[in-house]
């Protein structure tokens, strides 16, 4: 399935809903969208991985890149993910210790205030 990207606002957060396959072919589009958001002044980003069917190292690299950009800009970055297959990928790569990962958008928008990247 092709990559799908949609943004919406939830309180002071911008939620980027990602769907489909995030791989070496589609990850550049995800990177572009995240860079656009940061460049347009968005500072609190929640990436919802609920619709993601496949995520590889290229996609993970893009997510880390976005988190670093927001850290420099004093913003916050968090992920929403409850799929065990994806959570296992974060555990194996130790990225579960790098990203704030929440089970729901509600928890992310509430919790990322506390875990804002400094």
């Amino acid at each position: 399935m092709e990559l799908s990207l949609a943004t919406r606002s939830v309180e002071e957060h911008t939620v980027l809903e990602v769907g489909g396959e995030v791989d070496v072919y589609t990850a550049p589009r995800l990177r572009e969208r995240l860079v656009e958001l940061v460049d347009s002044g968005v500072r609190n980003v929640v990436v919802d991985l609920g619709g993601v069917e496949f995520l590889d190292s290229t996609g993970l690299g893009v997510l880390v890149g976005a988190m670093k950009r927001l850290r420099v800009a004093n913003g916050s970055f968090s992920l929403v993910c409850s799929k065990e297959a994806l959570l296992k990928i974060f555990r194996i790569t130790a990225l579960d210790q790098v990203f704030p990962i929440f089970p729901t958008i509600e928890a992310a928008t509430r919790g990322s205030d506390d875990s804002a990247l400094s």
Binding site: S57, V62, V64, I92, A94
Partner: peptide, 30 residues
């Protein structure tokens, strides 16, 4: 090689280098 969490978040690590390290971690892990 598996990169430790503090290196993964390090500013000096390029996205390409991170992707390579993470890719190998996934291969070795799975």
């Amino acid at each position: 090689t598996k990169l430790p969490p503090d290196e993964l978040a390090d500013e000096s690590l390029t996205e390409d280098a991170l992707t390579t390290g993470v890719g190998f971690a996934l291969l070795a892990g799975f």
